[in-house]
């Protein structure tokens, strides 16, 4: 039995990572923005914009790689709106976030109709290759078992892990990370220390939009090959839950999102293994898991001290 058990385990963890990919991107985005002291509840809207932008660009330029770029740009555009509203116009950060979420939901639906003359779902576009496919593209011929397993891993997952490492590096090793956190801890103090708080925060929110947009793209052209209206299904909010779970600690983001992604993979598996279990109950598994962990999890680190304060 062990011969089957090991591949199943690997397969399951790869599925968990694939499921966690959009969450991981969005959670990183939330981390960057909130560490600098700007609340970002607009992750949901940014993901949705990213998902649509990716399909649009992939359709227009005929390549999923352009789609990835388009998704990032669309998320960043929403990030720019959020930064403009919160930092330049000093709007309430939560209100701005909600407005952007509503805007993204409405605008993607309208644009879907205008651009593709379609309701609900867009036509199919090119999909990003999985890691397995990508590797096989370079070495034609019979693939080894290890490469075939990697078919389960979409390319954006690798990109997401890479981004995590970059963010980790920035927060742990670079002056930039310290400066971002200083802005989130005490903006007046940071200003007095010679940090240009407004600029740092603007950059952080833009970067946050970019990451969340990539998250959306990984849904629409990574997991699927089309845009479905409201396809993010609250993953932006789940990413915020993951951020709280990680206690705003860059090191915690990957485990937290893997946990939630794992719960999603588990609910998929349960749906296949026990088809008679109620479907709705299974869908709630990640959310239930999230509540459970938040309830028992205690730590020293808390939200940035000046979160939401200008």
């Amino acid at each position: 039995m062990t011969g089957e058990w090991l591949p199943a385990c690997i397969y399951w963890s790869l599925t968990a990572l694939a499921r966690a990919t959009p969450l991981l991107f969005a959670c990183l985005g939330g981390l960057v923005s909130e560490s600098s002291g700007v609340i970002n509840f607009a992750l949901e809207g940014m993901m949705l914009a990213g998902a649509f932008g990716a399909v649009w660009a992939a359709h227009a330029f005929g390549s999923p790689w352009w789609g990835l770029l388009g998704g990032a740009m669309a998320g960043m555009a929403l990030g720019a709106l959020h930064a403009l509203a919160c930092l330049s116009l000093r709007a309430n950060q939560i209100v701005s976030s909600i407005a952007l979420n509503l805007l993204a939901a409405g605008a993607t639906g309208t644009l879907l109709n205008q651009v593709f003359q379609a309701y609900g779902t867009s036509p199919t576009v090119g999909r990003l290759p999985s890691v397995g496919e990508y590797v096989r593209g370079g070495f034609p011929g019979e693939a080894a078992w290890g490469v075939r397993v990697l078919d389960a891993l979409p390319l954006p997952a690798l990109l997401a892990v890479g981004c995590t490492l970059v963010v980790l590096f920035v927060f742990q090793k670079m002056a930039l990370g310290l400066v971002i956190r200083a802005c989130g801890e005490d903006p007046d103090g940071a200003r007095a220390c010679g940090i240009e708080v407004a600029r740092v925060r603007f950059g952080a929110v833009l970067c946050s939009g970019l990451l969340a947009g990539l998250g959306g793209a990984s849904l629409s052209i990574g997991a699927l090959a089309q845009f479905v209206e409201r396809m993010t299904q609250g993953r932006g909010y789940l990413a915020i839950a993951a951020l709280i779970l990680a206690r705003w600690n860059p090191k915690g983001v990957l485990p937290a999102t893997l946990l939630l992604g794992g719960a999603e993979a588990l609910s998929d598996w349960l749906a296949v293994a026990w088809p008679r279990l109620p479907h709705q109950g299974l869908l709630a598994v990640p959310y239930g898991m999230c509540l459970l962990v938040l309830a028992v999890h205690v730590g020293r680190r808390r939200a940035p001290s000046a979160l939401g304060r200008l």
């Binding site: 002056a175 930039l176 310290l178 956190r181 005490d186 103090g189 220390c193 940090i195």
Partner: peptide, 29 residues
Amino acid sequence: VSQQPHTFPQLTALENVLAGHPPGLFRLL
């Protein structure tokens, strides 16, 4: 050095000192 000390509560003392050093943002700590 102001009357009310401006410190970043969740950064360590060492990080607090370094954050006050006007840094090149992309410099390594």
